[in-house]
């Protein structure tokens, strides 16, 4: 896209873009660290994730302030306006992603005593790989504004949902096998849910990028394969 006649306006937009990329990088790192801390029972790493969340919250507030000032000073129109509004939404999503990483990290202490069974740890790791790939790719799409890729990411959330449902089922089985697993498995259930929701936020971001680029909302319902909310229902 061509530059603005008033170049300071371009600087404002570049600043917002750069801060979103930084937030995205940090959120991604926090979530990866949180899962590593969980499977390795690494309390120090978990603590680092918890303290990193402060940086992410601060970044979100700075982006909000800059966006508001930019709207007031530049009175943005068309795709500039969509971009600034989109930036606000994406910053909100990334801040939530950080919260989910932090919540996972907090549970590390609780499961530290028993440790995480190897099989479950692999399940959680696999789920988080899928979610973090989504997050990484959506941040790449934000940088290059590829509408086709944004749409593809949105479609792929289904995989994460399916994986989450299968992990949910596995955790239930463990709990039924031995009630002593309940504490750990309940925490892991929340961790799995956290990771699944990171995927949802990545999908939200993909939809926002689609809106920024086209001015339209993506068509059709996003595919959902999370059937955990009906799992365990007793058939009459």
């Amino acid at each position: 896209m061509t530059s603005h006649i008033f170049s300071a306006y371009d600087e404002d937009l570049k600043y917002l873009n750069r801060r979103i990329s930084e937030m995205g990088g940090l959120a991604e790192q926090m979530c990866g660290d949180a899962v590593r801390a969980l499977v390795n029972s690494d309390a120090a790493l978990a603590q680092k994730v918890i303290s990193d969340d402060v940086i992410l919250d601060h970044a979100e507030r700075e982006i909000q302030e800059k966006a508001i000032v930019t709207i007031a000073r530049r009175q943005p129109m068309a795709s500039d306006l969509r971009e600034i509004i989109g930036t606000l939404r994406i910053a909100g999503d990334l801040e939530r992603v950080g919260d989910l990483g932090k919540n996972t990290a907090k549970r590390v202490i609780a499961v530290q005593g028993t440790g995480v069974p190897r099989k479950l740890a692999r399940g959680i790791e696999h789920l988080s790989e899928l979610a973090l790939i989504q997050l990484k790719e959506v941040l790449d799409v934000f940088a290059n504004r590829s509408v086709a890729k944004a749409e593809a990411i949105r479609q792929r959330d289904e995989e994460i949902d399916a994986m989450y449902t299968s992990l949910f089922r596995e955790l239930l089985t463990y709990m039924m096998e031995d009630p002593r697993n309940i504490t750990t498995c309940t925490h892991l259930l929340f961790c799995a849910k956290n990771i699944e929701r990171i995927g949802d936020h990545a999908t939200n971001i993909a939809e926002t990028i689609y809106y920024i680029a086209t001015g339209a909302q993506p068509e059709g319902e996003r595919p959902k394969d999370d059937s955990s909310n009906t799992l365990g229902a007793v058939a009459e």
């Binding site: 896209m1 061509t2 530059s3 603005h4 006649i5 008033f6 306006y9 943005p76 129109m77 068309a78 795709s79 500039d80």
Partner: peptide
């Protein structure tokens, strides 16, 4: 688009 956004 270029006009309302103040772009070249």
């Amino acid at each position: 688009q270029d006009y309302i956004m103040g772009r070249f």
